[in-house]
Design a protein around this nucleic acid. Structure first.
Length: 311
DNA sequence: AAGACGAAAGTGGTTGA
DNA sequence: TCAACAACTTTCGTCTT
């Protein structure tokens, strides 16, 4: 802990999720991305406050000149200004001569600068969908922002071609949840969209393969709060379960196993050890696996870690 | 009677030729 | 594209508390 604080003092940019200190900077886009977990670093957020000082309300009002903060979740990042088609100025007077020609040129360039018209359209639809799906699943803002970034990158790599926007958004959001360690499983994405599980899983793999994001493997510990919450288990039991998972990881027992099953089994064991027992059925139901899987994992864990099942 | 256990067959996804 | 494979599920009969 002391070390971490020291680290933070030395280097202002520490990933708030994984504690990593290496970032890829993409100054063109104004992004700083953590190399170990792929999240958009939160301590590099744009400072949306004013750069001037004001001591009275009048001063503040006189100097304020900014709008809403920039965000990745709006197709043009919320920074649009449009030049209207009417040849009249703000007061309704008509504009004449060279001034009029200048405005004509400005309009032309503004439209040309939106040359990626289809991309822009795609993004508007996609960001709408992200907003909808995100709130449906109760995902925090940060996480939606990261999903938006992943989607933009996927779009740049032309991964969206031939796939549905909805599917790619769901995939981006799923990966973003994994980065932010928010337990949302593939199945939850499919219940809120019209996407089939298989298609979604494929999109997820495509993104992992072609887009430069590091996504941590789903860990049983991420699921723990959720499952134990459903079962109203005590903090001690949950802690015990977490440490069992850590031991299992150290022994290499977790590779290739369904994290749900592992979380379930460790909670079952911890429940018995800490006198907060739940039946296999209850645990299985809460963690979306079968009793059989709970049993198998539980047997494995007990045998390999030499746990004696005495309360 | 409810819960735990384990065998056997079936399912969906991954991997490597 | 296909077969082999590992993990997980379903089902069901038996044992334990």
């Amino acid at each position: 802990m002391a070390k971490k604080t020291e680290n933070q003092a030395k280097n202002r940019h520490v990933c708030s999720l994984c504690g990593g200190t290496d970032f890829i900077e993409d100054s063109k886009r104004g992004e700083r991305v953590c190399t170990s977990c792929g999240c958009v670093a939160s301590d590099h957020e744009m400072d949306t406050g004013p750069e001037w000082r004001a001591f009275t309300a009048e001063e503040r009002n006189a100097r304020a000149r900014t709008g809403a903060p920039a965000t990745l979740m709006i197709a043009d990042k919320g920074l649009a200004t449009t030049i209207s088609w009417g040849n009249r100025d703000a007061n309704g007077r008509s504009i004449k001569g060279s001034r009029r020609a200048a405005i004509y040129r400005m309009r032309k360039w503004q439209i040309r600068s939106m040359a990626h018209g289809s991309k822009h359209r795609n993004l508007s639809i996609a960001m709408n969908e992200l907003e909808r799906l995100g709130s449906q699943l109760g995902v925090p803002r940060d996480c939606k922002e990261t999903a938006a970034l992943i989607y933009r990158k996927a779009l740049d790599k032309r991964l969206v071609r031939g796939r549905s926007i909805e599917g790619m958004i769901a995939a981006s959001l799923y990966l973003s949840c994994r980065i932010h360690r928010i337990p949302r499983q593939l199945d939850e994405m499919t219940t809120e969209t019209r996407i089939k599980r298989k298609e979604l899983a494929h999109s997820v793999r495509q993104i992992l393969r072609y887009v430069n994001v590091k996504v941590p493997l789903p860990s049983p510990n991420d699921l723990m709060p959720r499952i134990s919450g459903d079962l109203n288990m005590t903090g001690r039991a949950v802690q015990r379960a977490t440490s069992i998972i850590e031991e299992a990881r150290a022994e290499g027992l977790t590779a290739g196993k369904d994290p749900g099953g592992l979380a379930a089994a460790s909670l079952y064991i911890a429940g018995i050890l800490e006198n907060d027992r739940r039946t296999q059925r209850e645990i299985a139901k809460a963690s979306n696996v079968t009793e059989v899987t709970v049993r198998n994992r539980y047997k494995e864990l007990v045998n390999s870690l030499n746990i004696t099942m005495e309360p």
